[in-house]
Design a protein around this nucleic acid. Structure first.
Lengths: 217, 217
DNA sequence: AAAAAAATTAATCAAATGATTAAAATGTTT
DNA sequence: AAACATTTTAATCATTTGATTAATTTTTTT
């Protein structure tokens, strides 16, 4: 009955077991689903156990505590979120306009599949009991990105009016993420079903790209 | 030791007592502050009592339960939020452009003072244990607004490209509200202090108005 | 001033909840 | 197969937390 380290577990998984069938993986996947749907404070460890279809004790056996499990989920989620962004931002082969297009297109698709991620991230960062924000180099990621370099050049050439690239990035994020954050409200406002909402978001890609592109000559 | 009704309390307040000095009012004000800062699930009734500087039992004495107290706060917050919107939307004396300007200006000012309201509303609507969204006629408010009427006319005259007024309204809300929802992230990204962030939002008013106005000829 | 009502406090309760334990079951190694 | 290690289960613990109670103080009414 020795409680092994998490790293030992990883080794075992790496050996070739089907990740999703492992109890550990099921707990983690259930935790991800419930945490993202309800937030840290509102989820009970029993909710996770139930969602995973396992005994409650297994959660603590594999992850020691609710908080440690949450840290793993939160870190992975934020990391994935940022990595996706960084990849587009730092592509030296694309123009600003192409980046805008790719960002809006791929982000919308991602969020149609996982619509609760933005609200989850923003909510959990608000409390930030653990201090994720400090650990994540979002500032470096933006300031030293290729996109910002491109944007500054474009500004110097008079191709964009707005001098602050932060405004540009915020507009981009706002227009894509906010509709998902406010999705229950928007569905109600427009009388949209889930399906209709997703179709609406698909169509919105084009108008959003157009709107952002008015910032760039 | 009779527990009086909430309405009786109101009468008393109406008699002329200074609202903020009443224990009941202090509990409510503290509840508003804590609920909006941390969300329903993360706040303990003891947090509220401490913030109000009163005995925990007073919360239940005046408001019966955490849930009932929350309902009052949530309803008032959402109502205020919508009323402010409806007032601008239904002003028959202003043009669309003027409405855009007023919306962005006043909303930004409001959110600089109460930056956590959008995230609070969106978070609590997500769970929606009580069913606020059903009770609130957001759909009617938008569809039958004077702004939507104006917008449709403008579309018929070829003054706007985008046929769906929902897209227009979402863009407006996104650009104003999202920066506050994501404020910790944005502060980190831009290396901004609280003061710098607020100044940034003030400046952003102008560029946001410009951006939205590109949708209207 | 006496009586009644309302407000407040400290102590306590009951349920929920995160976590642990000891035993049982399953899997692995020798 | 025996011994050992790992995984799983059911029961239980300890703390947190929303709520209540009974007594006390303060305010209002008569």
């Amino acid at each position: 009955m020795v409680l092994h380290l998490y790293t030992l577990k990883e080794e075992k998984v790496a050996k070739g077991k089907i990740l999703d069938s492992t109890t550990e993986a099921r707990v983690k996947e259930a935790a991800r689903a419930v945490f993202i749907r309800k937030g840290y404070a509102a989820t009970r460890t029993r909710d996770i156990a139930e969602e995973a279809g396992i005994n409650l004790a297994m959660l603590n056996y594999y992850f020691r505590s609710k908080e440690r499990l949450f840290e793993i989920i939160m870190f992975e989620t934020m990391f994935g979120f940022m990595q996706k962004m960084a990849l587009v931002f730092n592509d030296e082969k694309t123009t600003i306009r192409q980046k805008v297009e790719v960002m809006i297109d791929t982000y919308t698709d991602t969020l149609i599949k996982e619509p609760n991620i933005p609200l989850f991230i923003m909510s959990e960062i608000r409390n930030d009991a653990i201090g994720f924000l400090e650990k994540l180099p979002v500032d470096k990621m933006v300031v030293s990105s290729y996109l910002v370099k491109q944007y500054k050049e474009a500004y110097n050439k008079g191709l964009v009016k707005e001098p602050n690239p932060l405004n540009f990035i915020i507009n981009l994020m706002s227009l894509v993420q906010f509709p998902f954050i406010a999705s229950p409200l928007i569905k109600k406002m427009g009388g949209l079903s889930d399906k209709q909402f997703n179709d609406f978001m698909q169509e919105r890609k084009r108008t959003t790209i157009e709107l952002i592109n008015t910032m760039i000559k």
